[in-house]
Simulated assay, not measured.
Amino acid sequence: MAGLSILIPTLNEARRLPLLLADLARWPHGAQVIVVDGGSRDRTTVVASLAGVARLSSPERGRGQQLIHGMAAAIHDWTLVLHADSRLPPRWCSAVQRVIENPQAKRDAWFFDFRVEERGPMLWLLERSVGLRSRLGQRPYGDQGLLIHRTLYAASGGYRPIPLMEDLDLVERIARHHRLRRLRCPLVTSNRRWQEQGVISRAWCNWRLRRRWQQGIAADQLAGDYDR
């Protein structure tokens, strides 16, 4: 069976990280799990150590920098990048296995279907909208995960050292010459930002950030706005 590296950038995720690590423990033959921390002030790094996974400290804060650092440490040809506040269903293993055992699959990048842990009409519409954007627009984002072979990662230029939009930046470069395909399996993301701000308000904020980034606003400036 092909090996799998799993990369998780973290910042103050002590509460959510154990749940994701429990999901990842279902992988049948053991995976290289790498937690790359960006300077957490809670017990995130303690959680990673107790779970027995590889723990790295990024030399610079910012998710792009963390992902560069983590990808350099990945030992397998296939790497799965996940946000720490994600949850995976039991069938995630078979969905990923089907891809990494297919020699032709390395030509493409792969993503999960977007789901939010809380249910409701507005979130249902959001999930459908994200599904269309991902499939037709070829723009899945970081909260949908990214499964990528090292040859495609290198050919696409890899992650850049930016604190925000590092996911969109990479998938846009991948989409110029390759396809991004569904794993046909959901990845459930935390509802905390949607709950705090409301679905419409959060979606509008995200759209404005993406729009400003596409207009050339620096990612450092956008990161400050995103955290407000």
Rank of each mutant, 00 (worst) to 15 (best):
L11W: 05
R15V: 14
R16F: 04
L19Q: 05
L19W: 10
L21I: 03
A22I: 02
L24P: 15
P28Q: 07
V33L: 07
D37H: 03
G39M: 08
G39N: 02
D42F: 04
T44I: 04
V47N: 10
V47E: 01
A48N: 05
A51K: 12
M71F: 11
A74E: 10
A74H: 03
W78D: 07
T79G: 07
T79F: 13
H83Q: 13
D85V: 08
S86L: 05
R91I: 12
R91C: 13
W92H: 08
V99N: 00
I100E: 00
E101I: 08
N102A: 11
R107Y: 12
F112R: 04
F114A: 02
E118A: 15
L126Q: 01
L126K: 10
R128P: 04
S129F: 13
Q138I: 05
G142M: 06
D143P: 08
L146K: 12
I148V: 15
R150T: 07
S156V: 11
R160M: 07
R160Q: 11
I162W: 01
P163D: 06
E166H: 02
L168H: 10
D169N: 04
E172D: 15
L183W: 01
C185V: 07
V188N: 13
N191P: 03
R193Y: 09
W194L: 15
C205G: 09
R210L: 08
R211L: 13
R212A: 12
W213G: 03
A219C: 11
Q221A: 13
Y226F: 15
R228K: 15
